[in-house]
């Protein structure tokens, strides 16, 4: 399977990345080289093989649903590119 420049553009949109024309061409080339390499997985017979899970044979640990205080609101907000009061500020979402 090979990807086209148009598909790379669509994937970039899904990944929330902006690629210029030069970057798109380069990305298409790189992705096709990598995808050609991973093609070899098709040689492996995986009939009746279940997909790996690192929790195999283990129970997912459960936690009690309990209210807890978030310790450090000021320091957390200090990392925000824009904050006002106790809020993160983003460009207007609703017209």
């Amino acid at each position: 399977m090979a990807v086209s420049k148009e598909e790379v553009g669509k994937i970039a949109h899904l990944a929330r990345l902006e690629l210029d024309e030069h970057e798109t061409a380069r990305m298409t080339e790189d992705m096709n080289a990598i995808l050609a390499y991973v093609e070899q997985l098709n040689e492996v017979d995986t009939e009746n093989v279940s997909p790996h899970s690192f929790l195999e044979g283990k129970e997912t640990p459960q936690e009690e649903d309990r209210e807890a205080k978030f310790g450090n609101i000021e320091e957390a907000l200090a990392n925000a590119p824009r904050a006002e009061g106790r809020f993160f500020v983003v460009p207007k979402v609703i017209e």
């Binding site: 929330r16 990345l17 902006e18 590119p81 993160f88 460009p91 979402v93």
Partner: peptide, 21 residues
């Protein structure tokens, strides 16, 4: 939004995600 680089370019939310990343 919450941390890390945010682009100084103007735009809507989607553009902000794209340019910042």
């Amino acid at each position: 939004v919450r941390y890390g680089h945010r682009s100084s370019r103007q735009g809507d939310l989607l553009e902000m995600y794209r340019t910042s990343r």
